[in-house]
Amino acid sequence: MDLNGAAAIISGGASGLGEATARDLAAHGATVVIADLNEERGKSLADELGGVFVKTDVSDEEQVQAAVDAAVATGKPLRVVVSSAGIGWATRTVNRDGSPHDLASYRKVIEVNLIGTFNLMRIGAAAVAKTEPVDADGQRGVVINTASVAALEGQTGQVAYSASKGGIVGMTLPAARDLAAVGVRVNTICPGIIDTPIYGFSPNADEFKAKLVAPVVFPKRMGQASEFAHLVRSLIENDYMNAETIRFDGGIRFQPK
């Protein structure tokens, strides 16, 4: 599917993987709508890319609807929905002091990562379904969701995060089957260790990154956000990619901790 002249909405688009995706899609002719909570950064990036920013909590139905409406209001057909908003959390199911995992934090991670992804997918795909098909196959658009290799190989303390990301993987095939009727494809990317600003703020950041890279098979480094964005675009442009979960991790296999 050709991105040029289409609208694309990207949750978590103000930084990290979402920002890289917004930049790549805009460079290939898409009008990007950045749905994010970071108002200052989101507005600045949207202005730079000639796009639109909408302050959005992905777990809030009305805010997601407003972001999708803004994408439709660009006057370009909404063809692409990318979910990359998410939060992390690290707590054992039972802590070393014998206390159980906090339920509120578990619910919060599920609410943002899993329900937030579904929220944007369902509302975004409904808007895509109202556009005209772009080809003889009846294709109207593409949804790309972001999970994690933690969905498949969660480490110690990742029970909430892995459950939320595993839920995204689990809904890929049924969502693709549901949305086939309206000409929308759905794929999920499971990133491994990607070099985003989240890893670069501590005094021992380089040492920490080296430890993270150790289990990567090849190339022996962290992935780049721009490489993730390239994969997103490849999945959009390749019309036969559908209902797939793609590992993007340099061959890493996580150890228990």
Results as ranks from 00 to 15, higher is better:
Ile87Met: 10
Phe118Lys: 07
Glu111Cys: 08
Ser148Pro: 06
Gly88Tyr: 05
Gly138Arg: 12
Glu153Ala: 14
Glu153Ser: 14
Thr172Gly: 06
Asp102Trp: 09
Thr131Gly: 15
Ser162Gly: 14
Arg107Asp: 13
Met121Leu: 15
Leu78Arg: 03
Ala70Tyr: 01
Ile87Gln: 05
Glu111Ala: 11
Gly157His: 09
Asn113Tyr: 02
Gly170Phe: 07
Ala175Arg: 01
Ala104Tyr: 08
Ile144Tyr: 01
Lys108Phe: 07
Tyr161His: 09
Ile168Gln: 04
Thr93Cys: 09
Val112His: 01
Leu78Met: 08
Lys165Val: 05
Gln158Asn: 12
Asn113Ala: 07
Pro174Lys: 09
Asp60Val: 03
Gly86Arg: 00
Lys108Trp: 05
Thr56Met: 02
Arg107Leu: 10
Ala163Val: 07
Val52Gly: 00
Pro100Thr: 13
Glu132Pro: 13
Val112Gly: 01
Lys76Asp: 10
Thr172Pro: 05
Ala67His: 02
Ala151Val: 07
Thr91Pro: 04
Glu111Leu: 10
Asp137Ala: 15
Val81Lys: 03
Gly141Trp: 03
Ala129His: 12
Ile87Trp: 02
Gly75Cys: 06
Ile115Asn: 05
Val112Ile: 15
Ile115Gln: 04
Ala180Lys: 10
Thr56Ala: 02
Phe118His: 08
Asn95Thr: 07
Val143Gln: 01
Lys165Ala: 04
Val94Leu: 13
Thr156His: 10
Thr156Trp: 11
Glu132Thr: 15
Val142Gly: 01
Val128Asp: 06
Gly166Arg: 06
Asp102Val: 13
Val142Gln: 04
Ser105Leu: 08
Ala136Glu: 15
Val68Cys: 05
Gly167Met: 11
Thr91Asn: 12
Leu179Met: 12
Arg122Glu: 12
Asp178Glu: 14
Arg107Val: 06
Ala90Thr: 14
Gly167Asn: 12
Leu114Ser: 01
Ala150Met: 13
Ala181Leu: 12
Ser99His: 12
Glu132Asn: 15
Ala176Gln: 08
Arg92Tyr: 09
Trp89Tyr: 14
Leu120Tyr: 01
Ile110Tyr: 04
Ala85Cys: 10
Gln139Asp: 13
His101Asp: 07
Phe53Trp: 06
Tyr106Ala: 08
Leu179Gln: 06
Asn119Met: 11
Ala176Cys: 09
Arg122Trp: 10
Gly157Lys: 08
Ile144Met: 09
Lys165Gly: 02
Val52Phe: 02
Gly141Phe: 08
Ala67Phe: 04
Thr156Lys: 11
Ser59Ala: 14
Gln139Phe: 13
Thr74Asp: 04
Asn145Val: 06
Glu62Trp: 01
Ser164Met: 09
Ala85Glu: 01
Ser164Gly: 14
Val149His: 01
Asn119Phe: 04
Gly75Ala: 08
Val109Trp: 00
Ala136Cys: 10
Glu62Ala: 11
Pro100Arg: 14
Ala71Glu: 02
Pro174Cys: 10
Asn113Val: 05
Thr117Ser: 14
Ala127Leu: 10
Gly116Glu: 02
Ala73Phe: 03
Ala127Met: 11
